[in-house]
Design a protein around this nucleic acid. Structure first.
Lengths: 132, 132
DNA sequence: CAGAATCCTTTACGATACTG
DNA sequence: CAGTATCGTAAAGGATTCTG
């Protein structure tokens, strides 16, 4: 995954499976913080510290790594303002904005069905404890 | 991530950020094969070998791991048929079916914008080569 | 405060071999 | 063919430190 050298092939007849282009979207969200960070920028550009506080539970380094990768993906852009003191903001590109739709769909799904997933996980966990 | 002990808190006022329940959905898709496997079962139960061939590029072990985890998540269920020879199939649960919507939204997004992401990545890659 | 550089730990992924 | 058991590796996440 994630080698631009191995560019995905064309869409398979069956749909999204195998090396088809739909996997590009799946691969983006396999990085833990992608969805959270993109969603955190939905209302406009933000400073890193502010964004980090809003997200919670992400280290400064990991947020930085994530933002740089999103820049490489063309989803986020960095703005530097030559003020005193200098100010930095990250915002979604037009391409990044288009990703908000699927991310919100996923978030809405979790708000509706997340509890069911948690319950299933706890059920499985209890089952494992019984079995040893 | 992924400790049932640390169950996500309630939704924050800001939306989906931090430890809110929307992250449950994000966390599901951070596993490389979740979206692909769920999507591969969209048309009904399938035998592991068949599913593996349709996906392509996934080892038998990893497919097995993924299916077991999806079982724990309540998204997939295993059917065993006591025939001769015994047959096994995996299919989506009702809960798993509901996840197809967001996954298809993400896939459709990638079909439309995936090229733009690839181009951005290649641009970034070339840039890095120039800089050293 | 932004962010680069280190170092460490974990784990998902993958290859392989073996059992029903 | 389904599934388990090992083992190795690469990469992501995270903590810490230091510099503009």
């Amino acid at each position: 995954m994630r080698e631009p050298a191995t560019a995905p092939r064309t869409t398979t007849p069956e749909g999204f499976i195998a090396d088809c282009r739909a996997r590009i979207g799946f691969d983006l969200l396999t990085r833990t913080w992608t969805a959270v960070v993109v969603f955190g920028l939905r209302d406009g550009p933000r400073r890193p510290g502010e964004l980090r506080a809003a997200i919670g539970g992400i280290s400064a380094k990991v947020l930085n790594d994530t933002l740089r990768r999103l820049e490489d993906d063309g989803l986020v852009e960095r703005h530097r303002y030559a003020e005193a003191p200098p100010r930095v903001e990250y915002g979604l590109t037009p391409l990044g904005l288009t990703l908000l739709g699927p991310i919100e769909a996923l978030g809405a799904w979790a708000l509706e069905y997340g509890d069911a997933v948690l319950e299933a996980q706890e059920r499985a966990e209890r089952q494992r404890e019984r079995d040893g």
